[in-house]
Design a protein around this nucleic acid. Sequence first.
DNA 1: AACATAACATGCAGGGCTGCATTTTGTATG
DNA 2: CATACAAAATGCAGCCCTGCATGTTATGTT
Lengths: 207, 207
Amino acid sequence: MPNSVVTPPPGAGINARRSAETRAALLDATVECLATDGYAKTTTGRIAERAGLSRGAQLPYFRSRRDLLAAAMAHLAEQRLADFTARIGGGEVSVADCVDILWASHQPPMFDATLELWVAARTDPELQGRMLEVEREVTTSLFQAVDTALGDLTQRPGFADDFVYVLASMRGLALLQISIGPNARLLETRWRHMRGELIRALEAPQV
Amino acid sequence: MPNSVVTPPPGAGINARRSAETRAALLDATVECLATDGYAKTTTGRIAERAGLSRGAQLPYFRSRRDLLAAAMAHLAEQRLADFTARIGGGEVSVADCVDILWASHQPPMFDATLELWVAARTDPELQGRMLEVEREVTTSLFQAVDTALGDLTQRPGFADDFVYVLASMRGLALLQISIGPNARLLETRWRHMRGELIRALEAPQV
DNA sequence: AACATAACATGCAGGGCTGCATTTTGTATG
DNA sequence: CATACAAAATGCAGCCCTGCATGTTATGTT
């Protein structure tokens, strides 16, 4: 049973609760399916099967497959953010910790599912529109979280640019991960190297 | 009419020539289709249409859709390499030039098609096996080309790691490109920033 | 306890994709 | 010029996916 970010209404009508749970189950199943089967094989049937529902049950919630995927985009974004903020906690952290936590949120299965949606959105105008909104919000929230976690370091000129750079590099390494196969040791080596570079990039204003 | 790396036999039998051309046309059409329509919509019908052939004509060349995609993987890899070596020429170049040329080979439509195949291979064991081979060869050849282009700089300890780091970062930025939409100016800004970091990473052994 | 409503399951029609068998066209050889 | 062969086009059967209309079960109300 996957973890859901959506908190159903407390004691309000049991029906409403069931609805919320079912909806969340569908979204979770979609994310799982994306991560394990990929976008092309993320079909309404498989989603329903994973969610433990029949195929027709998703119509009241999502009119079409694309609607479901678009909703899963936002759902996944919430999960990414929640995961990050949960790891980073409330207080201040070091730059190294921040980088490590960011990297933790670029691991399978969440990153894989996100990647599938990014790539799918590239050639699907509707999904792309939704993605632009979602990504903008996520980036903003992420930046705010980092801002409070790192303190005044984020005030130095050019920090925002450096942060985007760090994000991009991480995504690249996560992408590389799928093209070097299941070689965990090699990936760890690569990450150790990149980690040093990224920490330096965030700390040093500029040489 | 797309450019093909495959050079058909010179004056040998016209049939053989036609075969080679048709095969190349199919592969080129597949790559185009991947870049514009995405993996899911890269269907045998669309490929045939783009190649100016009928659907059944691809059977003598590729037994199945997956065979065609696997072949397109290698085809695309050759194109990527050819593009890079053509740009970098024979003589030596500066680190900045090398970085710029590498970045040029991470642009649409070639990068988009490659990305589609990478992501598809993640959830398709057969494609993944093929991809591991292809990527290993590409990386090796790419490294050799850079080695001759940059001269003795590549001999310093840790250069290989730095080079992989540069590749990963670029892929990340190219990936970011599809999630910030068609905002060319913003991307240019991001690239300017990353470019400086990457050049520094390649030049400076370590701080 | 009977009714009304919401949630879910079942079944069907339409369409697209794949893979192949078959036919037609074009090319080489005696 | 006629025949043998290769290449490409056409047509078909099977499968899966989607969207929806209809039926069934569970829940809440009076």
